[in-house]
Amino acid sequence: MQAMFTGVFTGFFIRYLLLKRDHRQYPSYPHGVMSHLALAFIAAVIGSIAIPALMEKEFTAVTFLALAATQFREVRSMERTMLEGLDKTGLISRGPDYIEGIARVFEARNYLVMFTSLIVGGVTYWGNIFYGLLVGAVAFLISRRLMSGTVIGQIARVREGKVSFDGPNLFVDGIHFMNLGTDKVREEYMERALGVIIEPFDDNARATLANNGQRMAIAHDSAALLGVYKDVDTAEFTPIVRRDLDTGRVGMVIVPIEKDIELLIEAVKRVPVLESSLSTPLKTSIGRKASD
């Protein structure tokens, strides 16, 4: 009994700590948080009773683990469906890659909770509550380390780029973005727009930044943090991320509400590198040879 309670408590607590109520990761409303905590509770219960039940020779308990796995796959599709729906009405869309990434994190964290509860429950069953909590703390540190992915700032240098026009064509540091008609729009751009250049450190980063989903994520996060000078009927102020084919540099032009280049650079640096866009050509021999 004690084993089960310790397991449930630690698992639930870890889920709460991992549930970052950050508007980049999650539209933070209390009911969303509630439903995830409820799921975490179920995961923790299932995880923590597994080992004590096995010890009591109740082998049916193991089937519950399999059942739970199917349940949590549902979490992923639930999150995906919801975020896809929200993406249609948002001014700047997250893009399918980012949504898939967020959904996957929600699923994985439930497994993490289940696994932690399993271990804590088991250790408490054999040892005592003190060892159980100790293992729980270690599991928390490990899971936090495992679950924190890389960010753009770790794979590329982010710096300011100069926004300029050549006729109707918009450039940031020589990267062509788009053709914009009417003088008024161009004046607004010259007055308000900010440009950043993201320079990849190596070929892996270059391939990652080439992914369109990754670029949409950069545009979305920047717009979410600095605001965007745009409404549904002014599509020309949508932030755009384009690639310099010669060097693999990526540039972004955005018309923010808060015109502060330092904050924009910081925002871009903190954009997560999406699991689905992460590319590692340098890990293959062909990729290494091609890079020199």
Partner: peptide, 18 residues
């Protein structure tokens, strides 16, 4: 031309290109 193009862009939620 600028005026018509801007109106059309706002109404259709499109972007004007030159």
């Amino acid at each position: 031309q600028d005026k018509i193009a801007t109106y059309l862009a706002r109404i259709t939620e499109g972007v004007v290109h030159d």
